[in-house]
Design a binder for these strands. Structure first.
Lengths: 144, 144
DNA sequence: ATAAATGTGGGGATAAGTGGGGAAATTGTG
DNA sequence: CACAATTTCCCCACTTATCCCCACATTTAT
């Protein structure tokens, strides 16, 4: 399970160190792809398989579904950890996430996320401001 | 599985290098044909077979189905990788896709696509702008 | 304080992508 | 049928990117 928040950096070759705690789950292969709010999602092969099957079922004949599927599949990349436990992030994904130098790596149960540091800071702040609303919604769902 | 986005170029002889990661799946033969949204589709023989069966089931009384079937079948061309892992794209397909020099090759699970660079850039941008739908689709699939 | 583990940086070997010459095959024409 | 013209494909050479490896820095543990 992926948990926690880590502050790492990307080097000139586009490599990011994966937190040690996540490496065991990812060492057999991982998929990195576009996420929401301009972050990147990282899945294990098994998790990706489930997702890919769902995506593939969407109708090719519908233009909106087609563009969505294209963004997800063309925006994905199969990677392996190098001997130092890093992944290299393709340039088009770095551009998408606005990643220059400092990144935040977070764990979210079944996936890892990679954020440009300033994007993460901004996102977290706005999320905290909406915290009370959020709590109410959660209560409605019956979590708390 | 075909995944990712690659920036390649076409040479004067009409050849395009297939990304290394795709070659194993395509080395036994491939079909290249007109795709949707002015790109080219590339299938393995096996995938083409499946698709051809689907196409034959379409109701030929419907004008749109008829034209779609014509598009796919009449534009299809059987190709092999050369020893450098390239395919040569017939001229009428290059014209269809508006391919001059720079192309983007994308992986879409069971097919590869070839785009003129500027066409892909434009397509991707407009797809990203419809991001709110995207989030809803993801939620529907059960990622979040 | 010392040792171990984790994260970062960069040199160098290896592989991938690109361009073009020339042989073989194909087509067309006298 | 012979020969020229064109196309196709194999091969070599070059450039650029990728990956492996070693080394250092920084943090954490003993």
């Amino acid at each position: 399970m992926f948990l926690g928040e880590y502050s790492h950096s990307i080097d000139e070759k586009g490599r990011i160190a994966v937190p040690k705690k996540f490496r065991n789950e990812l060492e057999k292969g991982l998929i990195i792809t576009r996420g929401l709010d301009n972050c990147l999602f990282v899945f294990t092969d098994a998790e990706w398989q489930k997702l890919a099957e769902q995506l593939q079922k969407l109708p090719l004949t519908q233009a909106s579904a087609r563009s969505f599927v294209r963004l997800m599949f063309a925006g994905a990349s199969e990677e392996l950890l190098d001997k130092q436990g890093r992944i290299s992030v393709p340039q088009f994904l770095r551009e998408y996430a606005g990643i220059k130098k400092n990144v935040i790596v977070t764990g979210l149960f079944n996936r890892m996320e990679i954020w440009a540091e300033d994007a993460w800071t901004a996102y977290k702040q706005s999320a905290e401001e909406n915290n009370s609303e959020l709590a109410e919604q959660l209560a409605g769902i019956g979590i708390i």
